[in-house]
Design a protein around this nucleic acid. Structure first.
Lengths: 269, 269
DNA sequence: GAAGGAAGTTCCATTATATGGAACGCAGTT
DNA sequence: AACTGCGTTCCATATAATGGAACTTCCTTC
């Protein structure tokens, strides 16, 4: 039993940012989360911190380029974040290992393929391959979606050990995105049982109407990294049968990724 | 020993990260800058901080998801950075205003169009439109390049007021990327004078052999935002004549962006 | 298989840093 | 002119970061 640094496994909700850094990031979060630009006072209301404190925090964030001033009084996320993200993506070993496999999967199906990592109860999209590349790439990669109503997310959840799974599912606040969205924890757990036995997860227009997909779980040997891949298409064109016909190659691609991980990242990985 | 400097006074170079946040970001920077994964001790050597201190800093960064552990002992940038970047891009007002214009420019020329912002003496690419979208998008957006040997960068520099320009140019460490790369400050200042009078900057294989472009400066009315746009193509196909034939529409697109900024961001912008 | 060393982790008194209440400056409003 | 809302600055105090040293593993060497 070696104690280690708190791994990036956020299953428990942090009270708010702990420590100076945490508080700073909390401010970033608030600004990131807002659909429209916030002025100083808006942020102040949302943080409930003393004015002086917030002002200095924002000052620091500005100095570091993590935050930027749009016009006088409104804040947006800074360029520095783009730079970091660019490098984060470039240097991501997992993504690099997975890429050839999801590319092959795309070539086999002709449809959009996603690679997503489980982060708490959300899925963060790490890569995406589609034919008609219509620019929106950046806004898609790094995007977050609820794990329990997406194919990649449900596949990933199914790779968790039971204790961990239950703990995380318990924190989900269910919400109806479409008529097909799963409504409660039991429904989700049942479906995950099915996914475990079949090896594939499906999204049947549960997150977005008209969009469905077939997915398969990917995880490292030690299950510190939990992810999933999926083949997505429009429901009018991709019938359930077609989706099921891709289940095998999707699982195969997932397996191939895991094999590569074990080979290239060391047996412990 | 360490004296805290009056914060909020732009112009003085930071010794290294100031304040807790700055130090944390400095660690992120070190990890981001490294071409290959670093272990704890590697970072320790690069920061020259006490082990205990660094350990806690990394600890905090991990907790916030800004850093991730690849395998035992090696660190990489965390997923959270991708999430933030995704939102930074989505919410960037400037990018949104510029997008339709650079898209039109792309349609008119059929070549790759870039939008970049000047950040110190670097250009950060904020958008890119190309026909044959070959996936690498994320790694391009957020990318940084030296301003003095790229079209967008030189165009942007030309929009600086003289004092500011000279100050920034003085900090450049010139380096030969290709046989055509400008070699010193005077050469750069001379070229910028030309750019100012003509309204266009050119990159004649100065950063990468075989790649050339024509660019034009973009800036807000108060010059707090300095940027540039460019049309780029392979030298074997895009001759100097062709490039020059695009100078006009490139300038026009830049103007249109500036007009839009003034209209949509308020006259003060 | 014991000794030595290197890498990572924890502890805690000291010190530097962040905090936040209050006061100030500056708009636009009444 | 007085008022109100917003952003900024100041500074004594509280808090969190610091860093030296001790402590674990784990790996290498003899």
């Amino acid at each position: 039993m070696k104690k280690s640094l708190p791994a990036g496994t956020p299953g428990d909700a942090e009270p708010v940012g702990t420590g100076t850094l945490g508080k700073a990031i909390a401010v970033l979060d608030i600004i990131a989360a807002s659909p429209e630009p916030l002025r100083f006072t808006d942020v102040l209301r949302l943080t409930e911190q003393p004015r002086g404190t917030l002002h200095r925090q924002i000052s620091n964030l500005l100095e570091e380029g993590l935050l930027a001033v749009n016009r006088d009084q409104t804040y947006g996320l800074g360029l520095r974040l783009l730079q970091f993200a660019s490098k984060a993506w470039d240097g991501n070993q997992f993504r690099m290992i997975a890429e050839p496999h999801i590319r092959k999967l795309h070539e086999a199906t002709g449809e959009t393929v996603h690679l997503g990592i489980l982060h708490g109860i959300d899925v963060v999209y790490l890569d995406k391959i589609e034919s008609r590349q219509s620019i929106r790439m950046v806004s898609q990669i790094g995007n977050t979606a609820p794990a329990w109503c997406t194919g990649v997310g449900k596949a990933a959840l199914s790779a968790l050990l039971d204790d961990e799974l239950r703990a995380r599912v318990a924190t989900i606040v269910f919400r109806q995105y479409t008529p097909n969205t799963l409504g409660d924890a039991q429904g989700l757990l049942d479906e995950i049982a099915t996914i475990r036995s079949e090896g594939n997860a499906y999204d049947r227009e549960e997150h977005e109407t008209g969009i469905c997909c077939v997915a398969a779980p990917v995880h490292s040997a030690d299950r510190k990294l939990i992810a999933g891949i999926s083949v997505t298409g429009p429901a009018y064109r991709i019938t359930t049968d077609v989706l099921q016909s891709w289940a095998g190659i999707t699982r195969a691609a997932a397996s191939a990724i895991m094999d590569d991980m074990n080979a290239r990242m060391g047996p412990r990985g």
